[in-house]
Amino acid sequence: MTKKKSCVSYTKWGYVFLLPFFLVYTIFNLIPLVQTFYYSFFENYRSGLTTIGPNFVGFSNFVNIVSKFNLLKFAGNTFIMWVIGFIPQIIISLLLAAWFTDLNLKLKGQRFFKTVIYLPNLIMASAFSMLFFTIFADGGPVNEILMGVGILDTPFRFFSSVGGTRGLVGLMNFLMWFGNTTILLMAGMMGIDPSLFEAAEVDGAKPMQIFRFITMPLLKPILVYVVITSLIGGIQMFDVPQILTAGDGSPNGSTKTLIMFLNEHLFSKNYGMAGALSVILFIITAILSICVYYALTKQND
């Protein structure tokens, strides 16, 4: 950004070409964002056919959402399901990225494997969840197969068990994102100076040592980026648990995420609560984004 390019001074056109972006952003994002913040300070909801409010209530929406509406439970659900998906995702992605970029290993069929592992990322999450719902149903193909080969005697009821449903959400998140993470980490690993690896090999370092003492430290900024952007994505988790549980976060609200909770308030027109929740999510995301920014600018130094 600080580098001066030999730009032509046709100043006017710079503004003209920026106009559509900023105009649309202001109308469709910025004003709604400001309005959302504004709503968060008002009591405004439907009770039967009557509308209560809007009455200015200060910060009481923020207090109520934690004390009366169990916000922390939904935050916990979201976090747990994110962790279930993310831990295998980061381990597998690191392994695959290391293997794919390892020149000694010379894996064949790399394009095929990359194509396959990235595929679930592009699949419509709602269709993918509907598919998982049907194949993991009590009488669905997975239970039939498990009973057919003698692993189970009676069907395992995935959607009546907290672990089963959360596990499936985590599994789907893992499948949808590990390909993407692998490709990001590969780009990072290929940016490492190959002479470092050669030197380590000449000194007799084992593959595991090279990975631990050369690859990992140099990859740290990208790893931080991957962890935090995944966490930002995790906060937005919605489609998968929403479709899998038909919106009720069953069993017992154990899979209801923050955005599902927001969606509920948007539909029931409880604008005060929806506003307060949006503001909280905005602030958390902003803090995480600043962390990403620092992780990446450190890399440049």
């Binding site: 709604p32 309005q35 959302t36 927001l262 905005f282």
Partner: peptide, 22 residues
């Protein structure tokens, strides 16, 4: 330029309330 980079990570969901009302 900095502004556009800053707004890159704002989730669409957090503006949804104002958005549907507008």
């Amino acid at each position: 330029f900095t502004f556009i980079l800053m707004i890159m990570t704002v989730p669409t969901q957090v503006t949804a309330l104002g958005f549907i009302n507008l």
